[in-house]
Structure formats: C-alpha cells, structure tokens
Design a protein around this nucleic acid. Structure first.
Lengths: 211, 211
DNA sequence: GCCTAACTTGAGACAACACTCAACTTATTG
DNA sequence: CAATAAGTTGAGTGTTGTCTCAAGTTAGGC
C-alpha cells in the first residue's frame, strides 16, 4: 500500500524540517494549529507541506511518533518497578506530565486521527503493556479489581481537561486532580461501580480510534 | 449602567426568539456555534441578532440564565438531604447530568464569558451554596477534609471531558468516571494530597471568570 | 554537462464566520 | 392617521484558514 519510492534529497530534508516544525507548533498550539504556520516555521512553502503530507492526519501521524515511543518507554519503566502500585502510579503520572508539557499530546487522546499502520501497531503494543501494568497492580491488591484498562481513559481525559483549564496558573491543580483520581482507583475503600466499563470497541470509538 | 430603555414589542419578541434559539443551538452544538444558525433558527436576520446582542457573550449570558437557575435549584435540593454525603453526591450527580444533556452547559465551565452583573450575582450565590454543601459533607466526616470547593472543578472539568469523548456511545462511561472520582473524594481511605488547592482567585482565572 | 522526472513555490480559488450599514419597514404616540 | 423614532434586513466587507495548480527550479542518472 505505501509505495515506498525513495524521496529526493531535498524532499527528504523538507520532510524532516516539516515534522520538526509540526512537533513544535503542535506542542504549543495544539493539533488544530494552522498548517501555514507549520510551513513557515519549517522555512518551506505551504505547497511543499501539502506535497509531503497530503492530509493533516498524515502530518500528525509523523509528528507523534516520538510521543508514541515516549509512552512505550514510560510503560516499560513502570513494569520495571518492584512495587506494582508504584509502577502503576509512575505510568499514570508520567503520561500526565507529557500531557502537561505538550498540547498536541493532549489533543491526541480526544481526536480521531487516521494513523499509519506503523503507528497503529505501536499503539497496539502500548495498550498491551498498559494492560500488563493494570493487571499487575490488581494482582498485588493495590488497584481496585473492578476497573479495566478502559477506565484509565477517564484519568487521562479528565487530567487533560484540568491542564487545559489551568495552564498558566500552576501545576498544583493538575497534581491534585491526579492524586484524587488515584485515590479513587485504590482497592482500599473502593465502593461498587454503578455501570459496566467501556468495551474495547467502545474505547476505540471514543478515542476516535482506528475505525 | 444598563440603560433600561423598554424595547419595542417586535424587538422584545425577537429577543425572546433569539434566546430560545440560542438555548437550542448552544445545547446541541456548543457555545461556538455559528451565530447565523441561531438567527436562522429564530426566524430572524443576522442583523437583528446583532441589534439585540452586540456580542456573543451577551447572548450566552441571556441564554444561560435558565441553567444558572437550575444549578441553584440542584444545590438547594442537595442541602435538603438529611444525609450530608447523599446531598453532596446528589449535587455532583445532577450537575453532571446537566453537562451530559447540554453541550452549552459543558462549555460554560471551560470558557471566559463576560457575564452580566445579574448572572454574576447568581453565580456568587451558587458558589456560596456549594460551599455549604461541601462543608456540611466534611463536617459529617464523609467528604475528605483536605479538599476545597475548588477541587470540585476537577470533577466537572473531568466529567465534561469524558462526556465529550463518549457522547453517542452511552452513559455508562460517564457514570463510571463520576463514581471513581467520588470514591477519590471520600474521607474513608484518603491519602494526603501532594499540592495545595486552587485559591479562589485562581479558580476565577481558571473558570475564565470575572477578571 | 544535459535532460527529465521530481520538487518547490505562492498566488489564488473556496469556504466558513464575524460583523457592519444604508435602505427599507413598523410600532407607537399625540 | 400622520410623523418619526425604533427596528429589521441581507448583501457586502474583512479575516482566517484550507487546498490546488501552472510555472519555475533542482537533483541525479546517463
């Protein structure tokens, strides 16, 4: 499907510059930032941007590769903790730090992006790791048994909203939000949940995922 | 300040229609909905809309009067519960129901609206009541003692985000999100919070409030 | 060094919205 | 039933952003 015709040297260089510029601009102004701004930042014309990336999603996909990798790295770190709950907290906390540092990353969870097969595979891997983090913390009796990987979405959607509302005010708000949410996820003192979790298919739809 | 010159009969009628149309359109499509759509829905020209409401905020302010009243009513109900925690849960739950039913209401918490003096007074009253709900639940030992009225913002911002992500999928997601958050707010099994709460001034800024 | 396919360029066509104003219409009042 | 102040109208202007394409430029094989 991806006809891998090699790019000419200048085209490749421009592609790099565009991805780099996209990272910067997306991080600062979100995934809806004007494409012209990205082209300008890359020192390239808008036409070239469209030559390299025919759709916004293609550019987003290229620009988010780093973040997907970073997410996987965080998950790996989490699994290396001796204490399962500490590992879980590490994972959630670091992801939230990424959200706070990068508006594009934040937007990613709330938007339907048509990702490349490569990114989709990486994401699937990430989910698998996250599943292990969750299961391990549950087996240790620290994370409440009635939650699902899907319930982590609430943590991330919620935290992203608090970051959006409080950027420029300080980090204490988001730290508190997260701490409260984590207390709600502890097995200790958990009250029965009133509704079933999102099914994997529903999560996909909600993430705007790979439909 | 508000020169209360009485409107002509047709102008008053149009004003009513516009407010009604705004309620409908804002509820369905959010506070950023095109003003032309509202004018059309009201059966009135765009010029008339601008005659009646010189700014979008003026229209939002007029359209949200009902919701502000509804919020106050919910708070009053909450205070009438015998059980303080049940009252607290009632309040939070009903507000979240409003969020789920009305996209405009959801947007309201995340946007800077220049409200009329009247609305501002109503909001201040609402906060006072919310403060009583929180204090009462804390005095009863059910709500953790280290949270503040300001921390409720996390519940509402977070829930709104989950609603945004899962509209069209079902209500179970938001119910779960809320239940987890409520478990995090219980005094029972609370772990110390890592950061100070938002000060009232910071909340105002974050709500985009009355700066 | 020349040729050609591969790239780049940026002006311009489109589209969506906000907002204005001169020309018309209508409610009110004496 | 004027006279007129108050109100309505919608075409027009400005802005911001997306996306295209004909004309010009350049990399790289021969």
């Amino acid at each position: 499907m991806t006809e891998e015709r090699p790019l000419r040297a200048d085209a490749r260089r421009n592609r790099e510059r565009l991805v780099e510029a996209a990272r910067t601009v997306f991080a600062a102004r979100g995934l809806d930032a004007p494409l012209e701004d990205i082209a300008r930042q890359a020192g390239v014309s808008i036409g070239t941007l469209y030559n390299r990336f025919p759709t916004r999603d293609a550019l987003i996909d290229a620009a988010c590769a780093d973040q997907v990798a970073a997410t996987a790295a965080i998950a790996a770190q989490a699994l290396s903790y001796d204490d399962a709950w500490e590992g879980f907290v590490h994972f959630v906390t670091r992801i939230c730090d990424l959200q706070a540092a990068d508006r594009g990353y934040r937007d990613l969870t709330g938007r339907t992006v048509r990702h490349s097969a490569q990114t989709r595979a990486a994401l699937r891997d990430g989910y698998r790791q996250m599943l292990r983090i969750v299961r391990r913390a549950q087996r240790a009796g620290a994370l409440r048994a009635d939650v699902t990987l899907a319930d982590l979405a609430f943590v991330f959607w919620g935290h992203a909203a608090t970051v959006a509302a409080t950027t420029g005010i300080g980090t204490h708000a988001r730290h508190r939000h997260l701490a409260l949410m984590l207390d709600g996820l502890r097995a200790e003192g958990a009250h029965p949940l009133p509704a079933p979790p999102l099914s994997p298919a529903e999560v996909d739809r909600a993430l705007g995922g790979c439909d």
